[in-house]
Nucleic acid binder design. Structure first.
Lengths: 233, 233
DNA sequence: GACTTTGGTGTCGTTCGGCTACTAATTCGC
DNA sequence: GCGAATTAGTAGCCGAACGACACCAAAGTC
């Protein structure tokens, strides 16, 4: 006989203290960097992800965008959820449940608002963080890499116009490996995602590079073959 | 000058009514089906996703697994978050925030617990649902299809041993298109995800099929080329 | 003007994916 | 019994895609 418990008599919501924790990512010094803010006095860790509770009528992504904006000075170019965490009480603000949110900020932005004390840290050299914040950063990094194919993530980490070498550098940063120039451009060519502008950028030595802009053309979804990429890390 | 609002004086969590809404998926009658339960009396829609608030010390996925189990009779084979929704008060239980969770149940399971009134509905022929539930079902369907390559989703919708044709049918169901037998098997062969058993299954007419089991071998992550699959639907 | 540096393209061999066609083993109809 | 039908599984061709390399182009440096 199967073990078959009866359904709950009547479901009920639970009142919890909620926070939106924001992982702001931006390419800084040839590495993906996370924006961290100083902890409140008395916390165990010196740094934390910026966070806040959602305000009245505010959706979760909106709250994430607001928090990121407060420290960036400009609105992030993309905001996406990366999962909710509820694993005990290891949140700096004592939240029962955290909604993890990743916000992207392009390369050309100013440094974080001075006075806020916020600072960029490379993803692979983070200071000690509260365990839940470390989890959320990890999830954000994984989510960004996994959605790279389906979300215009790379373009949101670049200014409005960029060179193809810039774009390739972002992809290499996110994927963590070098790409071949010709192959990269051939694939990009076939995707109809960018269009050339009539501007060129001369940057010190070397031949000037043409500037492109992100301008995806509508096209039929390519019927890709099945991939078995579990790779059971 | 940039518009640079000052950071929030001090972040604060927000107390909200939280629910975990569960999208239980299973292949039924050659279609992906969702498990729905009758609404409480007085609700506008007759059917709803099963849901409940997380209990004390329970993580979100655990709560989702518990809710699914209560209606399935057995534990779901995979539980994953598919995003949080906070868009007004359109939840059957009046939750401020819903955590969407997808639970998978294999083909060979019994029907939902009799007496609970739960029933399977094909994904593309759902009865009217509360708006937030409809959103969460949509997100679950998208998430399942997108994670098909990276998560052992197809294998969690099958019994412990299965034929390669069974596996291909699940992939076709999830992808919504036919696959070519030879290509499918060639790709599967190269992935080292399944191993043959010494059992065969004879099912009415036709040649008997060998049974396989899910047994992923550790292997180096293939260094795939970059894909630009935005397709800007 | 030769050299360096960076941008951009052509080509070639190999692999990959889609397809047709085939063999294999069973049930069904007569 | 015996061929038709049905399902499982494989071989091999062919065009497209991918990775590596070489090469050309346009700027600065000396």
């Amino acid at each position: 006989m199967r073990d078959r418990p009866s359904p709950p008599a009547r479901p009920a919501t639970r009142r919890v203290a909620l926070a939106v924790d924001v992982v702001t990512l931006s390419p800084r010094d040839d590495a993906l960097a996370v924006l961290l803010v100083p902890s409140v006095a008395g916390a165990r860790e010196r740094w934390a992800l910026p966070w806040d509770g959602p305000r009245d009528g505010e959706r979760l992504e909106e709250a994430g965008a607001r928090v990121a904006r407060a420290f960036l000075g400009t609105a992030p170019t993309l905001v996406e959820q990366v999962g909710a965490a509820s694993d005990g009480r290891r949140h700096p603000g004592g939240a029962d449940v955290s909604i993890g949110v990743v916000a992207l900020s392009p390369l050309d932005d100013d440094a974080p608002a001075s006075g806020s004390g916020a600072a960029w840290f490379p993803l692979d050299a983070l200071p000690p963080l509260a365990p839940r914040h470390r989890d959320i950063v990890e999830r954000a990094a994984v989510a960004v890499r996994q959605r790279l194919d389906h979300s215009p993530i790379a373009f949101r980490l670049l200014p409005a116009t960029f060179t193809l070498s810039d774009l390739q550098r972002i992809y290499e940063l996110l994927l963590g490996r070098r790409l071949h120039k010709a192959s990269f451009r051939r694939a990009l060519q076939g995707s109809f995602l960018v269009e050339p502008t009539d501007a060129w950028r001369s940057e010190g030595r070397g031949r000037p590079a043409q500037l492109f802009r992100f301008a995806p053309k509508k096209r039929r979804h390519a019927s890709r073959s099945v991939r078995f990429d579990l790779s059971s890390e």
